[in-house]
């Protein structure tokens, strides 16, 4: 519903798509809120059902694995609760990114709307669910630990960095999986595998001299920059450096790819 004047450079057009996507907040902020409201309209607990099931998982598995690893509940439960809450956010977002464009096929074929806004809408939805689950993480910390306020301020830049990285990754996955349908199951399987090699259930210290397993793992750094401020220890500067370089590289790659294919994505449906 805007003025189009062609031709223009593909990079200008791609940039304009991102600017419109971010500035037209009704397209993602408002719509994601409506998505959640409408999905749970006829349920009393609504999204709190997810939180309830998460609460049971964290409580039971937390108790069991504290014993398996021979750790105190005070030490283990907040560690696992925080890790699990963020893991669910990451994994849901990455798995849903497979359908980032495909779910909106009908809309995209009938209205000229900027594609990046649809990934924003999807991610906003998952952020709202994350906010519900945060209650569990906060409870676990308040009950078993003390909040270290001087460390906690790092949570905000950490969350921002992680969201930016998740957003560009989701865009990449959405483009790839719309064009090549075989990558959908690949993403699901990789995410599943990553859960096992990322320290959520187990403490990275257990790896002893095989630390490279976590140091190469982007998911470890994503979890770690969020977990450290909440649990009251310092975020390693290496984690920030790792994530920021990943953002720079991925953003450049995704932007160039998007600029070249933005008007062809519609034909990939």
């Amino acid at each position: 519903m805007n003025t189009i004047v062609r031709p223009q450079s593909i990079y200008c057009a791609a940039w304009a798509d991102f600017v419109t996507s971010f500035t037209r907040t009704d397209l993602w902020l408002w719509l994601s809120w409506q998505d959640i409201r409408l999905r749970y309209r006829r349920s009393v607990l609504g999204p709190w059902w997810l939180t309830l099931s998460m609460f049971i998982i964290v409580g039971s598995i937390g108790f069991a694995f504290a014993n398996i690893f021979n750790m105190t509940l005070e030490n283990y439960l907040p560690f696992f609760a925080v890790g699990q809450v963020f893991w669910l956010f990451f994994s849901t977002q990455l798995n849903e990114a497979v359908y980032g464009f495909l779910n909106f096929q009908h809309v995209l074929q009938h209205q000229n709307l900027p594609l990046p806004a649809f990934i924003l809408r999807q991610m906003m939805r998952n952020l709202i669910i994350l906010l519900h689950h945060m209650v569990i993480a906060v409870l676990a910390i308040v009950i078993f630990r003390d909040i270290a306020w001087d460390k906690l301020i790092f949570f905000i830049p950490s969350l921002l960095i992680v969201c930016v990285l998740l957003y560009v990754t989701s865009l990449a996955i959405a483009m790839l999986c719309t064009r090549y349908r075989d990558f959908g199951p690949v993403v699901t399987n990789v995410v599943q595998f990553m859960f096992l090699i990322t320290p959520i259930l187990w403490n990275p210290a257990l790896l002893k001299n095989h630390q490279w397993i976590v140091q190469f793992n982007p998911m470890y750094h994503m979890i770690e920059v969020l977990r450290a401020p909440l649990l009251g220890y310092d975020v390693s500067p290496f984690s920030y450096a790792y994530l920021l370089s990943a953002i720079v590289l991925l953003t450049a790659g995704v932007f160039v790819t998007y600029a070249h294919f933005r008007k062809r994505i519609i034909h990939w449906f």
Binding site: M1, N2, T3, I4, V5, R6, N112
Partner: peptide
């Protein structure tokens, strides 16, 4: 293609 004007599709 050049389209000048606000579009309602």
């Amino acid at each position: 293609i050049t389209v000048n004007g606000k579009i309602a599709s």
